[in-house]
Design a protein around this nucleic acid. Structure first.
Lengths: 204, 204, 204, 204
DNA sequence: GATGAATGAGTCTTCATTCAT
DNA sequence: CATGAATGAAGACTCATTCAT
């Protein structure tokens, strides 16, 4: 196996383990066992464990950049509708993330990266929110407010993801900035409801 | 300080540090320095570091359960419209998450839990996606397809969050299950577009 | 409970635990749980854990001295045979050791004082030696060399105890001193055999 | 130094220290200082401190088994007298225990395994019993009851060892079982006296 | 005297990294 | 280049002892 190939091999094995057990629970010992190489060999190709992990992430981002650039080149803006454009963009984003489950797991870190035990606990919480949203949607369907062709599993994950990210963005990332909860909620509702709700002829 | 108060004090200090540096980068030494107590005192109130962390999470979930139960009691379903109901629900969810920034940071784990260095790298990726979405939205506004009253910062976080969660849900969590990317993308587009796009009189 | 009684109570509880789990595996926590007293109370009566243990041992030795002195006073050397004297002495020694099983266990430390696991391992070895001696005795009985009225269990423990102590005495305690193994073995054989072997009329 | 040799080297150093200071008072730090190796090296060869100690014991037992098997093979039962057989057996047992003073010290645990301080205390007690027995023997010699060719040091250790083991066996190990002290003492006396006492022509 | 929360020195153990072969 | 034994800094946890109430 030549240098290039060996480096790639190590990366692949490490990626799998990082995705499964997180950065801290993955030991060099695990990686060399998985890759069937000697302990010292890792350090021939990577400065240290950090470098190995960072290389993984950077490869991911480089791939992402390339994928986006490629996608943009393929689009002929004059020939497709805005809706088709959006469809195309979203599909390509999903396709990219789908192409490497391990990296997706690492980068999106939802329920990974800590102990298995912690993850389970966190997933329990997320499952609760998802259920709550799902039951609200079902309620809406029964009452005739929500469109019957909605995929509830998808819609509740979509809404939960949106709420989680917005919470993180406004409450953690932009800490200290004053937040007008009513204004934000109104915006969220305005964006989500039209796509979820049954269209009423008048005075909706 | 009585037992109850001391335990709460330790939890508070630990929470802050876990939120800031993640589980693994937070040492017992850090916690006792922050809490100004002796090493052994932590172990008087918690079995071990895990227990401390799990207690934090479990408290959070218990609080969440209580908050949801309380909110549901307050709602008089007959008196409010479906839209008002949604508004109320979303606002309360956000309010709850806003009430404890540290726990929000721990539980939503977006860019937390690993090294500062790794987090920055991951945030860079997320920022790129957010920018991409934002520029698409701006493009849409310029072309007259997207509503001009959309808050771009909010909308792009909403969409990114939705896409991240859906990717995680379908590609990581439901690994192995066959996924029809076109169908999923269509659903996503159908939900998001009505709230984002300018309503066209005909043939939109 | 007055001071005297409380001190005795603590000693009794500690003795039981030391006998069962050894010095190191017995924690102050165990003692105060057993004695149903507060942590600090132990230190009102004893300087430290060592002191507690040493007090136990010293009480034992003081009792032993008293018992021996008492026994000697009771004997009227002129009235009993040498054999009766030996009988009396041995019986009293055994009686004393029997009177306090916990202290006996602590002081004789055979298979106690370390982990349960270690003890089991050591007992396994001792059991093997005992079995070996017992089977030799049975062999001797079959061949008509050993007295049939011998209690094999007792005799093998007696012989094993003798050999263990002599080994310890000559090989550990008197380390460095030259040992003539043949001479010692001859002595041991000369002492043990007459009591074990069948008396032959001639040419034994 | 190859793996085999290094493991043996660690075992040897640990054995020496365990024999000298007991299991608990021997720290990993002591072992690595003695063996002139790094802390981590111990854990390359042994799971933990327990494993190190248990390995020592198990090696000892394995050696013992081998030694016994070998000895039995060497004996030609038809060619030696019963007395010679006993002599041979006892001598080999002693020889084996003599061959490894440290392990002998660990396994026989007489005055080892606790603090030096405790050991001294316990040895003081044992010395008292030994002296008592010795003085009884001297008394017997003066009165013409005990054989003059008896080695008093050896005989008193033999008797003490026998009594200690029997006490431990009947009072600690077989706790709960009813013990007939007179019967036991009679047996002991019957076994010991013939080898110690001067043979009387008549009316013994 | 009794209490038990607080203390912190002392230990074991882990694991990323090095380096001689 | 590959190897894997050796390293030792770092970190979690224990538990005898103290002391304010």
């Amino acid at each position: 196996m030549n240098a290039e190939a060996r480096k790639a091999h190590i990366l692949k094995c490490a990626k799998k383990l990082f995705a499964e057990h997180g950065y801290y629970k993955t030991q060099i010992s695990d990686i060399i066992r998985e890759a069937k190489i000697a302990r010292g060999t890792v350090y021939q190709y990577f400065e240290n464990k950090d470098d190995l992990f960072v290389t993984l992430l950077e490869n991911f981002y480089a791939d992402w950049e390339k994928a986006v650039a490629l996608n943009l080149k393929e689009i002929d803006l004059d020939k497709i509708s805005a809706k088709q454009y959006i469809f195309y963009r979203i599909k390509n984003t999903l396709k990219f993330l789908q192409s490497d489950r391990d990296l997706c797991s690492i980068v999106l870190r939802m329920g990974v990266g800590l102990h298995k035990d912690f993850d389970l606990l966190i997933q329990r919480f997320e499952a609760k929110i998802l259920n709550l949203i799902a039951s609200d949607l079902e309620l809406g369907i029964r009452y005739g407010n929500v469109r019957t062709d909605i995929n509830i599993e998808l819609a509740s994950n979509l809404i939960a993801g949106a709420l989680f990210r917005l919470s993180y963005h406004y409450f953690v990332y932009k800490k200290g900035v004053h937040i007008d909860l009513d204004a934000i909620t109104t915006q969220i509702v305005n964006i989500i409801i039209p796509g979820i709700f049954v269209e009423r002829k008048k005075k909706s």
